[in-house]
Write a protein that binds this DNA or RNA. Sequence first.
DNA 1: CGTGCGCTTGATAATGGTCAAGACGCGTGG
DNA 2: CCACGCGTCTTGACCATTATCAAGCGCACG
Lengths: 252, 252
Amino acid sequence: MTIFVTQSDEEQGFRPCTHDFQTNCGNCRLNSICLPLALESDDIQLLDDIIQRGKPLQKNQFLYREGDDFQSVFAVRSGTLKAFRTTDDGREQVTGFYFPGEILGMDGISNNMHASSARALETAAVCEIPFSSLEKLSAAMPNLQRHFFQLMSREITEDQQLITLLSKNSAEERVAALMLSISARNARRKLSATKFRLPMSRVDIGNYLGLTVETVSRVFSRMQKLEMLAVDNKEIEILDIDGVRNLANVSN
Amino acid sequence: MTIFVTQSDEEQGFRPCTHDFQTNCGNCRLNSICLPLALESDDIQLLDDIIQRGKPLQKNQFLYREGDDFQSVFAVRSGTLKAFRTTDDGREQVTGFYFPGEILGMDGISNNMHASSARALETAAVCEIPFSSLEKLSAAMPNLQRHFFQLMSREITEDQQLITLLSKNSAEERVAALMLSISARNARRKLSATKFRLPMSRVDIGNYLGLTVETVSRVFSRMQKLEMLAVDNKEIEILDIDGVRNLANVSN
DNA sequence: CGTGCGCTTGATAATGGTCAAGACGCGTGG
DNA sequence: CCACGCGTCTTGACCATTATCAAGCGCACG
């Protein structure tokens, strides 16, 4: 299979990436939201030892593909990835976007095979966590086992939130909810909750939210007209967060 | 809070329940699809020791409610349950139906609080598995740890399938896919794959599939007209399974 | 025997999809 | 540096699927 590498690297200039490419969990500025959360420093060291850090992925490069042997889960270090599955008639369904500090690949555990594909939306670095090592370590470290159970459980509840969104909410509500989700995840990483650059295309947004590109575009236009959002291509500024919350009609 | 018990017990007569209410995992006829799967008989005994078997739930009775403290996950022994969450504006989103041998409640792990509610669609019996005991046991039994990771992962992939269904498929495709899912789960329990009684109402089906009752009803009528299904209220017979598969447009 | 709930069916309306055209931004190559 | 071309985004006109509203049926239960 061909790996498409049509990366242009230019958006590196835009992303406010203060990431200093430290090489261990102990001093990673993401460790408070990532897997090491709630581990003692000795234990972090043990976890650190099993983690592999490869070279960064270029934009559009696959981290894994649907059907690949499942070996590892991954923690995003920098950049953003999308996970998606391909429907029987060849269309694509985006199931999630993954930002720094977030874990992906857990859907591969059930059949020892990745149930979805993951590819980089921009240049991205990931930590690879071999699952067999993680299992062994978990058996010895109750906190780690607990935390990993929690991470999987969180993935479940987030998927259920998306199910609800798709099933019950209008186009505007869905887009507003996504903006709030991205905003909250930015805030968690101490970035601006109101001003950010979307790493994904309108197509991906629509695909994730069960809408067409045109609808997404129209919703952005309407929200702009209502002075809730300032939209300049991928640059988003939330002008009226309460308005957006109100429109989203979901807690988030 | 009031627990609604308006059970009529009458459908007991209809369900082909050959369940003999044995009291341990070792001889439960569901153990090949439930948690004990892949355990040695000594280990099954240990698992069995932590499992609590309460009295059956009546129709409409809650197993747990959104916001309840999370203590346990549950395995369905007999009957069917639905899981659902309540949206901010008070509507209900059904996130899953649970048949005998299936595990529910795992969405409560992440925050030590149930993220959804579960209630019985008909008289149902469940095995309660205290999570703290399960954690301890998992740390000591690699197979159990692995299996529980797999169960959670499966929940994730199933939620993602539903996301795809809601996002990409038409009303007919959704209903057809649900019929196939129920059929497959029946087959797994050695029941008829083509003739069964739906334990849930049209409202619940519509809610789960992101459709209104009216649409569900119309789809059933159309499928009946096409001689794919024989529908007699809740009694379903699949007359043309390939036709249904074709219409579902999903592997399943 | 009447009431109510769940299901069905029909008429109408609205949300979002489809098709089409054009704008804009960006990278490439002259 | 500018021109070109492509991909992405926006906007408009029209259409289709599904929701909404309304009415009626049938069965279960009081």
